[in-house]
Design a protein around this nucleic acid. Sequence first.
RNA 1: GGUGGGUUCGUAUAACGGCUAGUACUCAGGAUUUUCAUUCCUGCAAUAGGAGUUCGAUUCUCCUACCCACUACCA
Length: 488
Amino acid sequence: MGGVRTALYNYLFAKKHGGDFILRIEDTDSHRFVPGAEEYIIESLRWCGIMPDEGLDDSMHLASEKSERNPHAPYRQSERKGIYRAYAEQLVRDGYAYYAFDTAEELEKARAEAEGAGQTFIYSALTRGGLRNSLTLEASEVASLLESRTDWTIRFKMPTDRVVEMDDIIRGHIEVNSSTLDDKVLWKRADELPTYHLANIVDDHLMEISHVIRGEEWLPSLPLHYLLYEAFGWERPQFAHLPLLLKPVGNGKLSKRDGDKMGFPVFPLRWEAPDGTVSRGYREDGYFPDAFVNLLAMLGWNPGTEQEIFSMQELVEAFSLEKVGKSGAKFNPDKAKWFNKEYLRMRSSTELAREFVPVLEAHGVSAAFDTVEQVVELIKERATFVADFWDIAWYLFKSPEEYVEKDAAKFFKAENVQMAREALESTSSAEAMEEYIRSKEWPMGKVMNCIRLALTGSSSGLGIADIMRFIGREEALARFRRAEERLL
RNA sequence: GGUGGGUUCGUAUAACGGCUAGUACUCAGGAUUUUCAUUCCUGCAAUAGGAGUUCGAUUCUCCUACCCACUACCA
């Protein structure tokens, strides 16, 4: 959800200002490759109607070849592997970065020691003088290590005591002293891949990115990114850091577990992880994509008016980063359902009927399409999801096999049954029956509910007139007789 | 621990430094209805605490508290 919302805000901002929304896959961590994840992202965006202007080819795969539509291809960073090393080494040449030869074990040890002394180890101006890197070793040794080993990295040489002044569209002016920052790894010889920081800056520059709109978790990296743009001498884009999506109860970021625990999806589409665990999706749970997009849009942003229901086009027109909030937004599952309910009502009965037909078939019911349409017309105000339709209206298609005991005891009493039978048998339509009951001055509620119980098996549901119109007088009488046989 | 960010009803949020702090969801009550649902009405409920600036602070400044993120050869 968080990822989709970030994509959505990027998309809305781009469309609002006549820009392009570009899809780029940042897969620079070879250890974290997840099969199917890329396809999942693309399918999710498509379902939501967040179509990238750039990044996909005609078969909806990430574009690898440059074309008129995809001038910055490839869009998968693992495919751009070759371009990053030169940029990293340029920084080394210019004195903004250096080679580091410390092994994972050595760093691990340094961290453990610092922790033992009650401190935190960071690779920085304070510590790099005592570590194995191109700043401390002889040039000749550096040259031979670069040649002989394949586990070195290029680190950013974080300046000391520089106040980095930053401006964020959402958060305003922020200042950080560079002395509190560490020498981040920019490029790894082991897999010849950059880390996020380098790849992001290089690609954003190469792809002519004007605005970086991303999650708040990136805010602490912003000074590094500023310094990188500066080191390259590149014009930097504008930044906007979005508030986090928080779990509905308690504190912290929204996680997969929250959804399972509280019964709502946290993924746009059903997702089966490589380890076999399955997470439900909004699509499979019956949410409409436009409802999902709408509810996501309202999580952290507001239009400044009281309008809550927005089409994608309306969102594009109304969106502005200035109206994005600063504080984390707790996700509210009830409100999510409310959105879907509103969207269900806006759908035409024809459209909903088309979705209802397969549900009916799954229950062994086949009905004429215009009949289904009429049913939908009758029940759409009562439902949140199309999947609710069957529970609401099943008795229009089959007679009840059992009766809710409590309701039967209350309404299917002998004295009511007498009146109900007479009303049913002496009239030919629901309207006439109602008139009949009125003229006899019988208690309407008791008689009607007695009939309803026979027709539906419980004391709640659609109006008797509507039910009878659908099942017909004969079926109504048959159901009533069956109820009498079974209950009296 | 360090750095940064954040804080208005339970939740999402509104309010050029100036109203009785508004709206939606949830919840409760009522009206309508043959039941249920819908619809409509009503209600519950908030500026974290403390200083300061000001004629006036939800809004600006500072302090405190609490929450979150980051602190990896992950993004």
